[in-house]
């Protein structure tokens, strides 16, 4: 009787098993690389209705973050009011077409439809004030906004990202005077880890690591 299968078939189960391992590894690598916020969110730079340049206003003019984001150290969310733009633009570039929407907003009282860049899920309760009042600089999460013409998300803002810092705050804190200075160094980088540990101790920085710290 002629052989139904060639002899090489004997190796097939092993070959398939090896292939399966390879495929699982490749798929795992793909999911890890592509299905986390490091890929899906970092680099998000939506086109805003008004082409406001932070590089111009912060980097060039040297405005403080809080001039516009004025409630950030007391109340949190702080997309500036239209009036804030008009504090200067009632006299500067009053006819600029780029500002047409701002002038309309002031006339009509309707909000400028800014596009939300750093979106937190509803189940995350994040508060800016406790962070900026305890030495976490804007730059830690938002990157060097003072060099951005278009605001771009620089950090994944994933739970792992939050926890990295909550577990080791001494690596990220900066002096209170440097919190809103996007070009400043962390205490750890400027004065070493001992000074940073002392700051964390003196300011009683104990970031929560329990679920209920951020989720309710």
């Amino acid at each position: 009787m002629a052989k139904l299968f060639p002899k090489s078939i004997n190796r097939l189960p092993l070959q398939l098993a090896v292939y399966l391992v390879v495929v699982v590894c490749v798929a795992t690598a793909g999911v890890t690389y592509y299905m986390t916020p490091k890929y899906t969110r970092v680099g998000y730079a939506p086109i805003q209705p008004v082409p406001y340049s932070h590089a111009k206003h912060v980097g060039e003019l040297g405005l403080d973050c809080r001039y516009c984001h004025s409630t950030i150290d007391t109340a949190g969310a702080a997309v500036p009011t239209t009036q804030t733009c008009m504090n200067c633009h009632n006299q500067i570039k009053t006819a600029s077409p780029a500002l047409a929407l701002v002038r309309d907003s002031l006339q009509s009282g309707r909000s400028i439809p800014w596009v939300h860049v750093h979106v937190m899920p509803s189940f995350v309760y994040f508060d800016h004030s406790v962070h900026v009042n305890r030495g976490v600089g804007c730059v830690e999460c938002h990157g060097k906004v003072n060099q951005m013409d278009v605001v771009t998300q620089m950090q994944p803002m994933s739970m792992g990202f939050c926890l990295d810092c909550h577990r080791a705050p001494e690596l990220r804190v900066r002096a209170k005077a440097d919190v809103f200075n996007l070009d400043s160094k962390t205490i750890e980088a400027a004065q070493g880890i001992d000074a940073a540990r002392r700051f964390v101790h003196d300011w009683n920085i104990r970031p929560p690591q329990s679920c209920s710290g951020c989720h309710r």
Binding site: Y33, T40, R41, V42, G43, A45, P46, P121, S122, T152
Partner: peptide
């Protein structure tokens, strides 16, 4: 990773499949 894009970010767990958590 790290490319700059303007379209809304991809949602790995989209709202239609997992409603009511991320966007309450």
């Amino acid at each position: 990773r790290g490319r700059v894009f303007t379209h809304p970010p991809m949602d790995v767990f989209p709202e239609w499949a997992f409603p009511g958590m991320k966007y309450q």
